[in-house]
């Protein structure tokens, strides 16, 4: 297996994101974690992740705002929005910000993996 895929996880809920990181590690991914948007942006610049998971609901800066800032310097890195609760109206607005997918926190981690792999596959083709 070539170089490990680097996944950046940005979420203000450490209890959730640590489990997710642990799980992705167990599946052979490299993970880096940020607990707020600003730190996430910094890590994108510094660590150049292959894909980002961004929590939508964060207190200081929400996932979409953080993504807008990321897009200012990186238009390529695929981003998946994660949330405990999302309504369809909000999801509709994500596309124009270059969101590649949405993962609902209540779903099995398996689903996030399926999503992650399909997003990466699509991305490579371009």
């Amino acid at each position: 297996m070539d170089k490990k895929i680097k996944v950046l996880l940005v979420d203000d809920e450490p209890d959730f994101i640590q489990s997710m990181a642990f799980w992705l590690n167990s599946k052979g991914y490299e993970t880096i974690v940020a607990y707020e948007g600003g730190k996430g942006i910094e890590l994108v610049k510094k660590e150049k992740p292959d894909i980002i998971f961004l929590d939508f609901n964060m207190p200081a800066m929400d996932g979409i705002e953080a993504l807008k800032k990321i897009r200012e310097f990186d238009k390529e890195v695929p981003a998946i929005i994660i949330s405990a609760y999302l309504d369809q109206k909000k999801i509709g607005k994500f596309e124009k910000h270059g969101v590649s997918g949405v993962f609902y926190k209540g779903e099995d981690f398996e689903k996030s993996l399926v999503l992650l792999e399909s997003v990466l596959k699509r991305h490579k083709k371009r």
Partner: peptide
């Protein structure tokens, strides 16, 4: 209900990890 969901999800995920024997 939104606030209640967040901790529930964290608990659920941790237990899943244990049950999935990843840990």
């Amino acid at each position: 209900t939104h606030e209640l969901r967040t901790p529930l999800i964290a608990m659920d995920k941790s237990i899943s990890l244990l049950l999935g024997k990843q840990a």
